[in-house]
Design a protein around this nucleic acid. Sequence first.
DNA 1: CCCGGTTGCCTAAAGCCTTTAGGTCGATCT
DNA 2: AGATCGACCTAAAGGCTTTAGGCAACCGGG
Lengths: 189, 189
Amino acid sequence: MVRAGLTTARVVHAAAELADEAGFDRVTPSELARRLGVQVASLYSHVKNAHDLRTKVALLALDELADRAAAALAGRAGRDALVAFADVYRDYAREHPGRYAAAQVRLDPETAAASAGPRHAEMMRAILRGYALTGPDETHAVRLLGSVFHGFVSLEAQGGFDHSSPAAPESWVRILAALDALLQDWPTS
Amino acid sequence: MVRAGLTTARVVHAAAELADEAGFDRVTPSELARRLGVQVASLYSHVKNAHDLRTKVALLALDELADRAAAALAGRAGRDALVAFADVYRDYAREHPGRYAAAQVRLDPETAAASAGPRHAEMMRAILRGYALTGPDETHAVRLLGSVFHGFVSLEAQGGFDHSSPAAPESWVRILAALDALLQDWPTS
DNA sequence: CCCGGTTGCCTAAAGCCTTTAGGTCGATCT
DNA sequence: AGATCGACCTAAAGGCTTTAGGCAACCGGG
């Protein structure tokens, strides 16, 4: 019997590839075992159950996304930082649709707190330091940015912009320009 | 044998309630049959398969949402229309989380075209008539609005705003005010 | 009123998926 | 070399989806 050399990390990575190629909802123990040339039950040494498998893919995706974002932010500020950060999101979702979908699963509070989620929020706050927002306005703006990035990217992934012109990338550029303008001149209550 | 009086409409409606109570991913023929007090196979007279069932729930949700939005828009313009429309989205997602989740499933192109999806886009364009946007800028703005509404609502549903203050509703109000300001003063390229 | 057709709902069964229990054998450390 | 750990296996229970085929309740026409 030749061992396949599985580890939890390898299993999760293979699951992430499966997600990107076949869709996140096809990430199941049986499909994954088939790909790895392994019996289904063997996976249960590395993963608690099907849900745990998907959660681990989600955590992987959040980590990768945060790493990319951190790299993109280095040495940038203001509008440059905003655009670079936003492009990381969009590019990641296009390169890795399954992982991006995984990153949207609802995590239970403790798992979420231990995930890279907080890093994402922290980076958005860092971007806003390039604008003159204070107090709760900063939080509102963080939430607006999160909503726009996530909303646009997931609508685009769903094909929501496919049947109208101009093409999605142009809207993306113009929307980021509009957000930049809005952040520079944020309306006070 | 007493007949249960199933029809496709009743089956789909029960599925929508199941989605709201248990989550959209629990909308399965077996769970639904259990609720309806009916044998699983009986559902297959009204629905092609599990995927078809979920698609029909999605179409129901899109319809309901479009109906509510149309009612909210009647007699309103400008900022009033923007806020009313946005609140319809948010309220619907909070009242009917399962249906709202259903409305996010990717539909194949022909189903999407026959759905209430185009009505939604049309209504957003109508809102923008209260602002001075022309040509492609109107499309960009439609996409921005769609992204913000969908993004905020789904992040909120995911619990993304639970562990920071101020509370989500306050951000919602401020974000809508910011969008209104942005639309009044949309940056030209 | 009853009789035939339609169809709503059933039982049965095949085939897949998830999960657990328990065993074997390869790798590693002493 | 022997003991131990753990990676992977086989076996089996139980749930889900889907199809095939049957009965009986409703509906319109005689």
